[in-house]
């Protein structure tokens, strides 16, 4: 009997939860705010679904109901992607070590 592809995706999912568990415990507490903003940005990879939906309209009407939802989702996810990564960048740039010459 063949294994349903769903099982493979489930395996990836479960193993990723474990990876997430160990990786996130190793994050230093002082970087917990950047952690939240960066997880925000990467969870917006949901934009791939939005792009598929947006491009799904047929050639004579690109704006049918389903692709409009796709387009809106693209904008929402894009706000998050750009905003999330940039604000993380901005925060991380501020974390500095003590200057030695003091």
């Amino acid at each position: 009997m063949e294994i349903d592809p769903f099982i493979f995706r489930l395996s990836i999912f479960i193993l990723s939860i474990f990876i997430g568990y160990y990786v996130v415990w190793s994050v230093t507490p002082s970087l917990h705010t950047p952690l939240m903003s960066v997880t925000n940005a990467i969870s917006s990879v949901i934009i791939v679904g939005a792009i598929i939906a947006g491009l799904a309209g047929n050639s004579d009407s690109i704006f049918d109901t389903s692709s409009i939802f796709g387009f809106l989702a693209i904008s929402l996810a894009a706000i998050n992607i750009f905003g999330g990564f940039l604000v993380t960048q901005r925060m991380l740039a501020m974390y500095k070590k003590k200057k030695k010459d003091k």
Binding site: S16, I17, I19, G20, V23, M36, V45, I46, V48
Partner: peptide
């Protein structure tokens, strides 16, 4: 959504973010 779209990137990310938030 990642499961719906059968998209690995989305499944991995969802799991990472999900467990990250839970740990926090």
């Amino acid at each position: 959504i990642g499961f719906t779209l059968e998209n690995t990137a989305l499944i991995i990310t969802g799991a990472l973010v999900g467990s990250s938030g839970a740990i926090l």
